[in-house]
Design a protein around this nucleic acid. Structure first.
Length: 123
DNA sequence: GTTCTAACA
DNA sequence: TGTTAGTA
């Protein structure tokens, strides 16, 4: 698929999809006419990126997360001599995401308080 | 009409 | 990140 379709399917602006390519976060293949081309695999990665973004991950951090996920999913992962290291990093990532999730809940609680404070002011 | 790059806001 | 300009 081209940028336009990718952007539409993941609900991210085409401008941002191109940006991710330029930044090497999710490199695209190129057609003969130099158009960016993406496969279903790329769509899955884009969705992962979309989920990471609101958690506050920087592009650099997302790059590392994607690389870790790739390494962990690779067929050779099972026999990788550094499997323990890999698993350790996955555990750390989970803890990190859990922590960010908590922060998000605090934000939601804050929003609820604002809403509650508005209630008595409204007709 | 869509995509591309570059540049400005 | 949105938008605009000039192309392919």
């Amino acid at each position: 698929m081209t940028v336009g379709e990718m952007a539409e399917r993941v609900e991210i602006s085409h401008r941002t999809v191109r940006y991710y390519d330029d930044e090497g976060l999710l490199p695209a293949r190129r057609s003969a006419g130099n158009y960016r081309l993406y496969g279903e695999d790329a769509l899955a990665r884009m969705m992962t990126i979309r989920r990471l973004k609101p958690l506050g991950f920087t592009l650099e951090e997302m790059r590392k997360v994607l690389a870790l996920l790739d390494a962990a999913s690779a067929p050779s992962s099972a026999t990788d001599p550094d499997r323990p290291q890999l698993l350790e990093r996955l555990v750390e990532l989970e803890a990190d995401v859990r922590q960010r999730r908590e922060k998000l809940e605090e934000h939601v609680a804050g929003a609820d308080e604002i809403i509650a404070s508005l209630r008595p002011l409204l007709p």
